[in-house]
Nucleic acid binder design. Structure first.
Lengths: 348, 348
DNA sequence: GGATGTCACGAAAACGTTTTCGTGTTAAAA
DNA sequence: TTTTAACACGAAAACGTTTTCGTGACATCC
C-alpha cells in the first residue's frame, strides 16, 4: 500500500533538489549526464509518473473535456461519446461525462460542477427541458468565463458557439423523396412537438419533399407526438395513436418517422392491421441504431453518422483549446454533417 | 472574457488576507460578522466557486471515479454507466470514462492515464483481450498504490478486489428450466467460447437445467460462437451457423441464447425456415436491452439489472473511499445481482 | 592575476486552496 | 496598573509540479 512516489521523495532519496529531479526527468541540458542517468533510473524503478492534478493546477489546463448529454442509454448519444472519446484520447485528453436526464436543473448543476476547474471545455447537447424553458444563461456564463462550448445535434441559434448539426432538413427530404419515388402516394409523418429543433426540421424536410413533388400535405397525416413521455413506458399510448392514424387514413402507403422507435412501432401496428411491409406500406426511420438494423423487416433509415459527429466535435473543441488566440476575436463555425439513406427491407 | 475569480483576487479587492476570505466563506467563528457579510456578499456577486483542481491537490482527493469499459455503444454498459453516474452524482462525485475497445493495451494506457491522480478509484469490466491474455498486472499495480477497484460483470477470481456479478449460472438455469416447463424437448444453446467467463457460466447453467430434468445434453446442440468477430459485421456468418444447427437438428423446439443478438438472429433464421414462434420453437435471450423489447415477436429474456449493477458498484466504491480505514485489513466482497426472467412473446 | 564564461545545481515562486499557529488590539479581571 | 483572555485577523506551510533566476566552482582567456 505504498503511495505513488513524488519528486520530493526522489529528491530526498538521491540527495539532490526537487528542481534537479524535475529537470533530469525532462532531459534538461542543465543537468549532467551522470545525474540524469541516476535520476531516470531511479524514477523508472519506482515507476514515477507526474501527478496530473498538480500539473493541471500549475498549467491551468486539465486536458480533460466535459460532455453533457441528456441520456446515455441511447444509441445516438453513446455513439457520439464513442467518437469524442476516440479523438480525445488520441490527442491526449480525457473525457468526463455528465448526464442531464433531460432536466434543466441537472444540466445546470452538472455544468457548474465541471466548470470549476475540472475541465477545459464542453461538448454538449441541450436537454429537452432547457429547450422548452429557453433559459440559456448557464451556457453564456460558462462561455463568458473563457470556457469554450461545442454543441451538437440539439442546438439553438440564440447561443453563439461552435456547433455540429445533422442536416435534418435534407435528410428528411431525401427520405420522403425516396418514398415518393418508390410509388407512395399518401405519406404520413410521425414526428415530435416543434420545440425539439430536430423534430421541427425533419417535419419541414417532409413538407418540402411533398411540395417539390406537387403533393398537398394533409394535416391529418402529420402526427406530432408528445415525446416528453418516456418512450419505454408509454409504448401503448404510442401504438394507439399510430393505429388511429392508420385507421382514419386507410390510403396511407408510406410512413416517415423521425426516430427508430416511432418507425418500428408503425411497422408493428401496420402488421397488426394486416398490412405487408414493404408491399402495402413502406417505412423509413431516422437514426441508424441497432433497432433499425435488427428489426424484421429491417428498417430503411436516415443515418446521422453519430460517431463522426462526436469526432468532429472533439476536434473542433481541442483545436480551439490549443489555438488560444486570446487576442484574435472569436469566430464560431457550424459544421453540418450530411445524412445518408441506408436502404433495407422496409422499402421497395 | 473575465477568468474565474479566486480567493486571492477577492482578498486584494477587499483588502484582507486570503486566509480571512477563505474562513469567511466557510463561516468560521474566527471571523467577525461584519467581515463575513462583506466577503460573502462580494463572493456571491462575482459568483465565486472554489477551484476543484486546487481542492483536489490540497485534499489529495479528486471526488472523481474512473470507469473503464470495453465499449460504450452497448445497452448493457451504457446502462451500468447510467447507474454509476446517478449514485456518484448524488454523493458528490464525478465520473470519467475510459474505453478499452476490448483491447488490452488500451485498457492499460487508459488506466495509467487516470491513475496518476485524476481519480480516486476505478469501476471496470475487463476487456476480452485481457481475459484471453490473462495478464492482470495493471490491476494489481493500481491497487498496490492504494487505489481501490470495483469490478463488474466480467471478473476473474485471480484478482482480489470488490466485485459485482450477475448470477449468470442461475439466470441461465432458470431460463432453460422455463423452456422445459413450457414443453420444449430439444433445446439448443447459442453461446460464446469459454474464455468469456459469463458465456461459460451461462453454458453451465444450461447444462445443469438439462441434467435436473433428466435430459442428456447433446454436443451438436451446443453452438459456441466466436465473439471476437464484430457482431455487426459478421451477421451473415452468424446466420449461417445457426441455420446449419437448425437444419442438422430439425427437432429443436427451444433455443437459449446468451445474448440478444444471437436470440434475434435465431428467431430470424427460424422464421426463414418456416417455423412459427413460439408455436414451433421458443426462444429466450440474455440481457434486457432495446432489441428484446422491440423485436417482433418480442423476446423473453433474462434481465441483468444493469442499472442496479452500476448503482451498487458506485456505492461499494464510494463507501470504500470514504471509510479509509488504512489500518483495518482489507476485506473484499462480491455482490451477486439476481437475474429476472422477463416473459414476452417468444415463449408460450 | 583578474575578468569572463561555462557548468551543474538549488532556491523560490507560482498555480488556488485550507488550516495551523502566531500576534496585535482591546476589554475584562485582579 | 498589570495580567489575562477573548477577539479578529494574517503569515506560512502544504498539496506536487515546472520554470526562472541566482550562485558557487571551475576553467579559459587576455
Amino acid at each position: 500500500m505504498k503511495r505513488k512516489i513524488t519528486l520530493k521523495q526522489i529528491a530526498r532519496e538521491l540527495d539532490v533538489s526537487i528542481s534537479t529531479v524535475s529537470k533530469a526527468l525532462r532531459n534538461s541540458a542543465e543537468i549532467s549526464e551522470d545525474t540524469k542517468q541516476k535520476v531516470q533510473a531511479f524514477a523508472k524503478l519506482y515507476n514515477y509518473k507526474p501527478n496530473n492534478i498538480a500539473l493541471s493546477l500549475k498549467n491551468r489546463k486539465t486536458n480533460t473535456i466535459g460532455i453533457i448529454i441528456p441520456e446515455i442509454v441511447h444509441h445516438f448519444f453513446s455513439k457520439v461519446i464513442s467518437g469524442v472519446e476516440t479523438v480525445a484520447n488520441k490527442r491526449g485528453y480525457n473525457v468526463i461525462i455528465g448526464l442531464s436526464n433531460e432536466s434543466f436543473s441537472k444540466e445546470v448543476i452538472n455544468m457548474e460542477m465541471l466548470a470549476n476547474g475540472s475541465i477545459d471545455g464542453f461538448i454538449l447537447s441541450i436537454s429537452k427541458e432547457t429547450l422548452q424553458l429557453q433559459d440559456y444563461h448557464h451556457f453564456n456564463e460558462t462561455m463568458s468565463q473563457g470556457m469554450p462550448i461545442v454543441m451538437f445535434d440539439r442546438v439553438v441559434p440564440d447561443i453563439n458557439c461552435d456547433k455540429i448539426i445533422v442536416d435534418d432538413f435534407n435528410g428528411a427530404k431525401k427520405a420522403v423523396a425516396k418514398l415518393i419515388k418508390n410509388g407512395c402516394e399518401t405519406i404520413a409523418i410521425l414526428t415530435t412537438k416543434d420545440y425539439v429543433s430536430v423534430g421541427k426540421l425533419r417535419t419541414q424536410g417532409y413538407l418540402e419533399a411533398l411540395q417539390e413533388n406537387d403533393i398537398t400535405p394533409e394535416a391529418n397525416l402529420i402526427l406530432k407526438l408528445d415525446d416528453t413521455l418516456d418512450y419505454e413506458v408509454h409504448l401503448d399510448a404510442l401504438e394507439t395513436e399510430i393505429e388511429q392514424l392508420f385507421k382514419l387514413n386507410p390510403s396511407v402507403d408510406g410512413v416517415f418517422a423521425v426516430n427508430e422507435l416511432y418507425a418500428l412501432t408503425a411497422m408493428k401496428v401496420a402488421r397488426k392491421l394486416g398490412l405487408e411491409i414493404p408491399k402495402d406500406i413502406q417505412v423509413i426511420g431516422f437514426t441508424d441504431g441497432v433497432l433499425s438494423k435488427h428489426a424484421t423487416p429491417s428498417l430503411t433509415t436516415v443515418s446521422q453518422h453519430a460517431q463522426q459527429m462526436g469526432e468532429k466535435a472533439a476536434h473542433l473543441l481541442i483545436d480551439k483549446l490549443e489555438s488560444e488566440n486570446e487576442d484574435e476575436e472569436e469566430v464560431y463555425q457550424t459544421l453540418v454533417i450530411e445524412t445518408e439513406l441506408i436502404e433495407r427491407e422496409s422499402t421497395k
